[in-house]
Design a protein around this nucleic acid. Sequence first.
DNA 1: CACCAGGCAAGTA
DNA 2: TACTTGCATGGT
Length: 230
Amino acid sequence: MQLRRNTHPLFDSRLNGTHARLWNIFHTLLESFGRRNWWPGETSLEIAIGAILTQNTSWRNVEKAIESIKVHDALRVDKLYAMDNEVLAQIIRSSGCYNIKANRLKALVNVIHNEYDDNMFELNSIDMWRMREILLGIAGIGKETADSILLYALEKPVFVVDAYTKRFLINHGIYNGDNHYDAFQRFFMENLPHDVYLFNEFHALIVYLCQSYCKKTPLCAGCPLKGDLK
DNA sequence: CACCAGGCAAGTA
DNA sequence: TACTTGCATGGT
């Protein structure tokens, strides 16, 4: 779908200023950086695995681990289910914290195998907030990982919050509410249309912005948002 | 050499 | 409730 600036049917100029401000920031980022094409990964299972492996870990190290899983022909629920945790840990070694992450991958795979017929995308048919509770019930899946799986693997319209998102909002003086995950998430979801593409692209653009410009100082040289900020 | 990276869970006060 | 710590590789 297209999200044109101020002419899209989901944009409602009668809504509050925060809505318009976020909408304009999104378009400034999109026009500055272009589409990010998230999430890299060919299947919902690969995306979910990446979401767990990238916990506190650079994506470059995760790519190596996923490639290693592919080399072992193990990017399948049945193969992972049958694999010993110690073997899996060595395969994903490059992603760091590999013993913990092997257990976390197995915890996810066990649920898919035992309750969803080895079919990861089967979870797409479940109600979003109920699915979120199921994911949060799996050991090693917290809010950010659960929401990343919901949005990028299962194509559900939930906003993903991470350390970049908080830094972005606070550094630019956009948000001054509670410093809790759910509060940041509500800030986006109460002020934007619930759209999978919009939430996908917006989160990816925030990550790109922070990795490129918004590191330590509030307004870094080259930040494309200066014109949209107070 | 230190510090960080697309977190989470368990422990402490 | 609000911090702190372990997990651990690989890049800067």
